[in-house]
């Protein structure tokens, strides 16, 4: 692995919600078993998180609610400004249209770059699937329009290509094609989630973020959606970061994972290894309670 350059490198990513004070560092985190600073009430979203993600790799982030995994994912998607940290994206592309962007972001800490560049990275290189499909799709436009939006973001300007790609993804996600021009308003939760998945994949992202994608779905639908994601990832070969509180999802989708608690990473390694032989007592608790 060491000869391959990581696609994404994150170093010391910290996000605090609140003013912050001198005590924040020492009074929050897994050792203190809390993420709110008792002095200034600032909440530690995530602290000092570092990792590398390689091309075509699937990384899992697991932890209970409030552990900071969603904050981490949103930070990587530039949903808000981070408190400190670095993020580098190195992507070797055969796509000439992206050459300018790739040059522009080479060796640049994306957290400190302009919102203009951040938006380009988000539009051209990444995709996100939120737990709640309504965060990712707009009910006032057609299902096909929602999928098209992602391609329009990436500056696709051929209607036929966009249309064909939308239809292809609709079929790929096992959706009835005759409903492509309808609003997702009247779709079931599972169908809305499929539309969101199609949208995220539409512009061929090299990195996909998954935020508890199956949590809101019925058990019967969950398995189908997970299978779908796994198959699509194997077919299109993109990298993924998968957030879940559920080791079942992590086991099914990921090769490597990190365990978070109170905003910090307490353990990371190969998924199978962590599941078989967890080191940190908290991980042991999580694994034993879930499996």
């Amino acid at each position: 692995m060491s000869t391959i350059k990581p696609l994404l490198s994150v170093r010391n990513l910290t996000k605090r919600f609140g003013p912050g004070c001198e005590d924040c560092e020492s009074l929050t985190g897994p050792t203190q078993n809390r993420n709110q600073c008792p002095t200034c009430k600032t909440i530690l979203g995530c602290g000092e998180v570092s990792f590398d993600l390689y091309p075509n790799e699937v990384l899992g982030i697991v932890g209970e609610s409030g552990s900071g995994k969603t904050t981490l994912l949103r930070a990587l998607h530039f949903d808000f400004e981070v408190t400190s940290g670095e993020m580098f994206f190195s992507y070797l592309s055969e796509n000439n249209e992206l050459t300018d962007l790739i040059k522009q972001i080479q060796d640049v800490n994306l957290f400190t770059t302009t919102n203009y560049v951040k938006r380009k990275v988000r539009n051209f290189l990444t995709g996100i699937i939120y737990q709640n499909p309504l965060m990712g799709i707009n009910l006032n436009i057609s299902a096909g329009g929602n999928i098209a939006e992602k391609m329009l973001m990436a500056e696709w300007r051929n209607l036929q290509t966009i249309r064909n790609r939308s239809k292809y993804l609709f079929q790929k996600t096992e959706m009835p094609l005759e409903r492509i021009d309808q609003s997702p308003k009247d779709f079931s939760g599972g169908m809305q989630q499929r539309v969101q998945i199609s949208k995220a994949l539409a512009s061929n992202p090299v990195l996909l973020f998954l935020d508890e994608v199956t949590t809101g779905l019925d058990l019967s639908v969950q398995a189908g959606v997970l299978d779908l994601i796994r198959n699509i990832q194997r077919e299109f070969r993109f990298s993924m970061i998968v957030i879940s509180h559920d080791f079942g999802v992590i086991r099914l989708l990921t090769e490597r994972c990190m365990v978070m608690k109170n905003g910090k990473v307490i353990e990371h390694g190969l998924t199978d290894q962590i599941l078989e032989d967890p080191v940190h007592p908290y991980t042991q608790l999580l694994v034993s309670s879930q499996l």
Partner: peptide, 16 residues
Amino acid sequence: EADYSAIWLYLYEDII
């Protein structure tokens, strides 16, 4: 941010 996908989408939806 040159965040213009919404206006493109407006045209797209009209055409569809």
